[in-house]
Design a protein around this nucleic acid. Sequence first.
RNA 1: GUGACCGUAGCUCAUCGGGUAGAGCACCGGAUUGUGGCUCCGGAGGUGGUGGGUUCGAGACCCAUCGGUCACCCCA
Length: 424
Amino acid sequence: MKTLQAIRGMPDILPHDTGTWQWLEQRIRSLVQSYGYHEIRMPILEPTALFARSIGEVTDIVEKEMYTFEDRNGDSLTLRPEGTAGCVRAAIQNNLIASPQRLWYQGSMFRHERPQKGRLRQFQQIGLEVFGVATPDADAELIALSARLWHELGVSDVVELQLNSIGSAEARLAYKTALVDYLRAYTADLDEDSQRRLGTNPLRILDSKNARTQELLERAPNLHDFLDVESREDFAALTGYLDSVGVAYRVNPRLVRGLDYYNKTVFEWVTTELGAQGTICAGGRYDGLVQQLGGKATPGVGFAMGLERVLLLLAARGIEAPEANTLAFGVGVGEQGERACFAGVESLRYTMPHAVIQMNSGGGSFKTQLKRADKSGAKVALIWGETEAENNTVTLKFLRSDRPQVTIAASLLPQELERICNTM
RNA sequence: GUGACCGUAGCUCAUCGGGUAGAGCACCGGAUUGUGGCUCCGGAGGUGGUGGGUUCGAGACCCAUCGGUCACCCCA
C-alpha cells in the first residue's frame, strides 16, 4: 500500500518544535491580554461570499488562492485565508460592535500557494482587531503593542516598521485615476503582471518588485498628494503617538497592502533575515468593512502576525525557548521494585505537581533503565530495587553532579527532593 | 500557476556507467550478574521516492510522475 502523506504545504509540527511554539504563543497571549484584548474563536470554514466581499473579488487571494468547495447542501464554503473577515462577521452577528471592542484570535489560515520559506498552505496567525474606535490612538496602540513584542522577544534590532496612509476611498479613487493616466503612457515598459493590474488593481503596481517598473514609479504621482484632510491629520497624529513612545518607523508611500478593505493606516513589520517572505506582521485600518458586511457603520483596525515567520526569525537569531527540565526519573528493578517505583512516583507527582517527573515503563534491565533516566535529562534517578522495596526506602542517584547517591526513607522523598531542587 | 536545484539507512552525507551500496551520529546488545554519561567490541537497519526507457549491466544516463528546497508571483 502506498503510504499516505500530508498535503503539500501543510506539514506536521513535531514534538521537537512544539515547546517553542507553546512558549511563543504564551508570550504573545499574555502580552495581548495585558492590553485588555479578549480572545475570540471563529470557525475555520465560512461562506465563500464573506471573503469575496471583504478581501476583494480581484485580489490574488480570492482569485486563485482559496480552498473553496461545495458542501453536501451545495453551499460554497471556503477555508479561511485570513482572520479579519470572519472576526468582523462574528462581531456583527453577536453584537460585539455596540461599544469599543478589543479582540484577538489565533488559528490556522489556508492559502493555495506554492510553498517556500516562510510560506505554507496552512499557516498560523495571531490577529488583533479593534472595533468602534475611529481615532488613530487605536492604531498607535496596536503598533506599540507589536513593537513591545519584538522587544520582549529580542528581535527589535532586525525588524523595521513600514508605515503609510492610503486615505479614504474617494482619495484612493482619485489617485488611482491619476496613476493609471501616468502609467498608461508606459504600458509597454511595465512587467506583465503590472500591465494586467493596470486594469484590475492599479495600486498593487506600486509594490511591484520589478526594477524597471519601480523606476517608472519614481516620477509617478504620489499617493500622499491625494490624501484627504482627515487621513492626513490622522496619519500625523499616529506618527506623533509613535514618536511619543519611541517606536521608530519608515514612511513608505508605496505600501498599499493586498486586501481591498483597508483605508487610512496600513503598516508592515518586515525583516531582512527571512529571505523573500520578510513580512512577519501586517495590518491596518478598515473603517468601511463592518458596514460593507451588513453591520452598522463601525470603524475597525487590526493586524495579524504569521507565527511560522516569527519562529523562523527567532531561529535565525538563535533565540530559543527555555527548556522544561525533567527533575526526576523513576527506575524500578524486579517485581517489587517496579511496583514500589510506580506508586512512589505517582505519589510524588501529587506533592510536586509542577515538577516534571518521568518513570520507566516497559521493563528493561537496571542498566537500560538508568540509560533511559540519563537520556531523559533528569537531574535525579529515583531507584527502587528489591532492597529499597523491602526496606521502604528509595535511592537517589544524581545524574548531573558528582554528589554521591543516597538512600533515604521513601516517606522523606518529597522534602528531600525539594531541598535538592533549591541547592542544585 | 512558472522556474531552478535536490530525493541513497531514523538524521547528515559519500559512492566519477562496473564487484555483495558505505561512513559519522542515533538505535540495540556486550565488556560491567544492582549503577547512566566516557571508552572499546559487536549487531540491526536500504525493493537507492515511484514508474518506464537506454544498456550485456543503472543508485548513477534519458523521460515521466510524486515529494522537498529556494526564487518568481503573492502575502502572515
